[in-house]
């Protein structure tokens, strides 16, 4: 029964993200195609649908994280879900959506890429691992953005100081993966991008722990 509550929470939070994605993806696609129709692929050839989409997924998931983190905790507690169960549902839902959104963008990228007037180059130059590892890294970056958004949402729900702290943590986490990549690649002799993958995984673990800490004793406002 208790695991059901985590499962139900995961499904419900994913449904909310899905509704958001159903708005986001068409709007993004229309804007992308519109820009290429206006400016032409000559100017913007380095912007493929997939590469731009995978980057903007991060922004979308950051926003969804903020909305869900701060906006649904009261709803969950009201339904008899504990803070811990909500936290679990939130991280599972974020993970599911990150994977789903990444796959969707790749599939749509392949379809949109058939259009003669869109960009073709991938701007993810800093990922030079096996393509599967590159995709895993991109999906994890999207997940990291979700967790960062969730932290900001929960932080501001808790109080302004925690919200501000969440923003600081988010900014640091964002810089960290890019900044540490060359250092890790040189030190461990890995392919370019492996440092990002390692750092992103580490930061995700940190964000999951900090999210849990923020939510642990959060007071529900009425």
């Amino acid at each position: 029964m208790n695991n059901n509550r985590v499962k139900n929470g995961t499904m419900d939070l994913s449904y909310i993200s899905l509704i958001g994605a159903l708005w986001y993806i068409p709007i993004f696609t229309v804007i992308y195609i519109g820009i290429f129709l206006i400016f032409g692929s000559g100017e913007l050839d380095n912007l493929s649908y997939m590469s731009v989409g995978l980057n903007s997924n991060r922004i979308f998931m950051l926003v969804m994280g903020i909305i869900i983190g701060g906006g649904f905790i009261k709803w969950a507690i009201g339904l008899g879900v504990t803070r811990k169960q909500f936290h679990k549902a939130n991280i599972y839902s974020g993970a599911m959506m990150s994977v789903a959104l990444t796959i969707t963008m790749i599939v749509l990228g392949l379809i949109i890429g058939l259009l003669p007037f869109v960009g073709t180059e991938n701007i993810q130059h800093n990922l030079d691992m096996h393509p599967v590892m590159n995709l895993i890294t991109v999906a994890l970056q999207v997940y990291l953005a979700y967790l960062a958004g969730s932290l900001i949402g929960i932080g501001f729900y808790k109080n302004g100081w925690f919200g501000a702290l969440a923003i600081v943590i988010t900014v640091v986490c964002n810089f960290l993966s890019e900044a540490l990549d060359p250092f890790l690649v040189n030190a461990l002799g890995l392919a370019e991008g492996a440092g990002i993958l390692i750092t992103v995984i580490a930061v995700i673990i940190v964000l999951i722990i900090v999210n849990r800490y923020f939510i642990k004793d959060i007071a529900i406002k009425i």
């Binding site: 208790n2 509550r5 507690i77 008899g80 879900v81 504990t82 803070r83 811990k84 169960q85």
Partner: peptide, 10 residues
């Protein structure tokens, strides 16, 4: 508080 067996009772 945070008791998954008790919270649904309320």
């Amino acid at each position: 508080y945070e008791n998954e067996d008790i919270m649904p009772l309320v």
